[in-house]
Design a protein around this nucleic acid. Structure first.
Lengths: 296, 296
DNA sequence: CATCGGTGGTGCGAAAACGATCCAGCCGGA
DNA sequence: TCCGGCTGGATCGTTTTCGCACCACCGATG
């Protein structure tokens, strides 16, 4: 009989493409992965990977195995999810995923309040760039900005929150300098993968330089605060920053709607219900700020 | 993340009803099973068994887990089966299951011939009472006597063999003694769970004693050879035994049909094809013997 | 052409899992 | 009532597994 856990290692390699990346995802040493997949191949009597210098690539046999290994994973995840859904104790782990900008500029105080309110709940905030997969139970609750309601996965339960607006911002000092006629080039600051939104216009100011590209929102904010130029930001970020002002003559535009997403079985959990109720109350209170009405 | 192999241990306990029986099926020490299921319960945070003095009984949570654990097993078995089906080398393991009586009274010489013909095939003969489950890959080929074709599992591939007849037998000495008028009681020898078939009659002799019950076919044959009474036997058993004769005045009756059963993916294997072709040739040659025509 | 980041592979000492064994409790039959 | 067979549980020495530190190799890059 094969060791079922070896199949888990096999899956990690098949997805990661290399033994070392699989080891990273699994949180073990790469030699362990090496040994276990070798053992699995020996027991099955089939070579499932081509061992190339560039990594492990699935063979035809490996492809067939992959399909059923994924089935095993599905069952295993459902098993965990179902057990977790039975857990009605308040104490335990609660994993929340949200975009880095929501965490750092808006909700961290609220997350802290919640943690203080429920000291027995162990919280884990996943605010990395990649969106965690709720179905795979990488997180229990997701706070996401959704542009089109149709893009929401059907298997998730969504609780609609306030709408989120954005505007065009510039550093207060730089706006004054512009009005004074400083010749320094004024640039669009854009996140490489996003570009300039259709709805953005330059308003009172005029672009005089080439775009300034950054890779993440934190750098974007730092750049606009330095007076490098103008950029689009969610209102709750721009309005809250005393160094920034909206560029006169520009409009607000809807970014999307904030949704609190949970997954079937885990939604029944007391921890999850406590959190979603708490966070939706807080979000409702933030509605004017999120809509960009706080400075009207 | 849970250890997937622990789920396999969980399944074994859930089915065996106790840690020790699970350890027996898994081929490990019972303390290992104890530790691994404890670890699984700890990681899931749920008690899946009631620890009774009489054994482990599933809790409600355990019942829910069982369902998905069985799904994992199905995927795992399919995985093994699919990989095994790709294996076209002659050398390797071949597991055959048949009833003890077929093995010991008819086919063992043929199995030995096949093993001599293919020394590179490692053979395993499962002739225990319980019928091995082909779908679970406990065996690769099953030789079974089927009374009603409709009882064949649909997912198995069947190769129809000769028909099998049975008759009523008595020890040669005892028949002579009966004719001489010995007053010793003459009994029906029956296997407890079977009883006396509808079609059996006593023919020339007359029952004078209470039934003699045995639990298996080997004991039944030993009893009738000792002259305890009469019994129904497959013709290939009774006719081949020089100590036994058919009771005059009794008829033959069809027991059922011999089928060679294989399972989807494993059927493609060279080993399995070699064996099924070999054994069906041998069975065809046995057809008169099996039909009880060898003494006509 | 040296370097750096990536790959798989290999020995060795530490850590974890395992098997053997013993124990206590329960239960049914002699 | 005692005994044997069953149950789970705890302990202890041994075996297996794991993580670490290396190595060789490859390709891109400065």
């Amino acid at each position: 009989m094969i060791d079922w856990d070896d199949v888990r290692y096999f899956l990690a390699i098949a997805r990661g493409g290399s033994v070392r990346s699989a080891a990273g995802h699994l949180g073990v040493n790469h030699s362990t992965v090496l040994r276990r997949v070798a053992r699995l191949e020996e027991r099955l009597g089939v070579q499932m990977f081509e061992k190339l210098p560039s990594g492990y690539r699935l063979t035809a046999a490996g492809e067939e195995v992959l399909e059923l290994a994924a089935q095993m994973e599905t069952s295993s995840l459902q098993l965990e999810t179902r057990v977790f859904g039975r857990d009605q104790s308040v104490r335990g782990l609660l994993r929340v995923t949200l975009t880095p900008i929501l965490a750092s500029h808006l909700l961290m105080p609220d997350l802290a309040d919640f943690a203080r309110l429920h000291p027995e709940i162990e919280m884990e905030i996943l605010s990395s760039g990649e969106l965690a997969n709720l179905t795979n139970r990488e997180a229990d609750v997701a706070l996401r900005v959704v542009y089109d309601r149709k893009t929401l996965p059907l298997n998730l339960h969504g609780l609609k929150g306030p709408e989120l607006f954005g505007g065009v911002y510039i550093s207060r000092d730089r706006l004054a300098a512009w009005r004074a006629g400083t010749p320094d080039p004024l640039r669009w600051i854009v996140i490489s993968m996003h570009g300039i939104p259709d709805w953005a216009n330059e308003g009172e100011v005029r672009i005089t330089g080439v775009p300034f590209r950054v890779t993440d929102a934190a750098a974007e904010i730092a750049a606009v605060r330095q007076g490098l130029g103008i950029t689009t930001l969610p209102c709750f970020v721009g309005d809250a920053d005393p160094l920034l002002v909206r560029v006169p003559g520009t409009d607000l535009h809807m970014y999307g709607t904030l949704w609190t997403l949970t997954q079937g079985e885990t939604r029944k959990t007391k921890r999850v219900r406590l959190f979603t109720e708490f966070v939706s109350r807080r979000l409702a209170a933030y509605a004017p700020l999120l809509a960009g009405l706080s400075r009207d």
